[in-house]
Design a protein around this nucleic acid. Structure first.
Lengths: 205, 205
DNA sequence: TTCATTCTTGAGTCATCGCTCAAGAAATGG
DNA sequence: CCATTTCTTGAGCGATGACTCAAGAATGAA
């Protein structure tokens, strides 16, 4: 019996993670449909045959990219803040401030991949569009859950509306991503974040 | 000498405004590149030859669509509010509330065409992307101008930052457009608008 | 060495993209 | 009527899209 780690046949000539990172950059920058297989193979430094053998079709590659993105610091900072911060207010303050720093960071394409990579799509790729909008709406639901918890724990005023607050923060985050893609600086986005936090409801009244 | 209104030759079989409206719907819904000439000719009920004779190439048609959109109620409500409202606060309050009502209106595609029709674009169509982002940034500049005026007139506190406020409102509006495309209702967006208005700086302090 | 397995390669498939054009049809002017 | 002008039509162009596949190369097992 062979150990499960034993590799047979010709080994891959490329590093899967590195290739995926190259694909991520392209999808992040131009979006799903505007990124061609030709551009992908060139950036990943592999031929079409290898790409399809390793990742399936274009949609599968994209979904794997989105999954990996969600595990990266840039793609996970929202969930991390929701988990790590004790208070909901602290969590959203941290989320907005980190978004302001991360979205315009020149070390990667501007904005959030989940927000901007599949906004313009043909009918036959509508599933890719809903794939991302489902992720965004899941984020919205997580916001609402966190805010409802805060309200039950007394942090958030009983007069506050968790669902409305969640939608508001979702909108601000998506807007900040778009502004980053339009050239907004970290300074501008930080100011936007601070202004946005003014909407946080006053303590129990 | 012939009068300038005299038409010669075979008259067009389609109404230009109607055809443009059909093209607008498609670009609005799917974006620039994801809308094909085939879909356009079918929706406009004309053949490719007529389309190219009447509108030039695809980019020219798109720019004409954007221009017409900017003159329509949906595309002009921001500029209208900035002009008609006496106070800056009244203007932005009206802009956000109208956006909340207009963006999810089911009588047309969701969100704002200028915001969402060219976010995912190939390199050869990068000019279309910047064409729209220039419009968005021009809007941002108009916001700042209005707020600076309000500050000079004493409506806005001297401690306020017109540029930061302008960027904040631009982000909120773009975020509301995206949320509308993700299925947000007018009710949700109205709540978002009201929360966003809480960022308006208190009177002179 | 030989076999089986896995990956690479380059040529190529089919569909669709934006776009063009010659020929015909519908109007006006003489 | 004919000539001129303008628009419509249907066929089709070259380029490019996603994707495939047979043949060769590199590995471990026997």
């Amino acid at each position: 019996m062979n150990g499960p780690g034993v590799k047979r046949g010709r080994p891959p000539a490329f590093d899967r993670t590195t290739a995926l990172a190259a694909a991520t950059r392209l999808f992040w920058e131009h979006g799903y449909e505007a990124t061609t297989i030709g551009e992908l193979t060139r950036a990943m430094d592999i031929k079409p045959g290898s790409l399809y053998a390793a990742f399936g079709d274009k949609k599968s590659l994209f979904k794997e990219v989105v999954h990996a993105y969600g595990l990266s610091p840039v793609g996970a900072f929202i969930g991390t803040a929701l988990e790590e911060e004790r208070t909901a207010h602290g969590a959203f303050r941290r989320i907005l401030r980190e978004a302001a720093a991360v979205y315009p960071d020149p070390s990667h394409p501007a904005g959030c991949l989940t927000i901007s990579a599949a906004t313009n799509v043909t009918v036959q790729d509508a599933d890719i569009s809903t794939f991302l909008s489902d992720l965004r709406n899941a984020n919205l639901a997580a916001f609402e859950t966190r805010l409802t918890t805060a309200q039950r724990q007394g942090e958030l005023s009983a007069a506050a509306n968790p669902r409305a607050l969640a939608a508001y923060f979702a909108a601000i985050i998506q807007g900040m991503s778009q502004r980053a893609r339009d050239g907004a600086t970290a300074t501008e986005l930080t100011e936007t974040a601070e202004l946005a936090l003014a909407a946080w409801p006053p303590a129990q009244g």
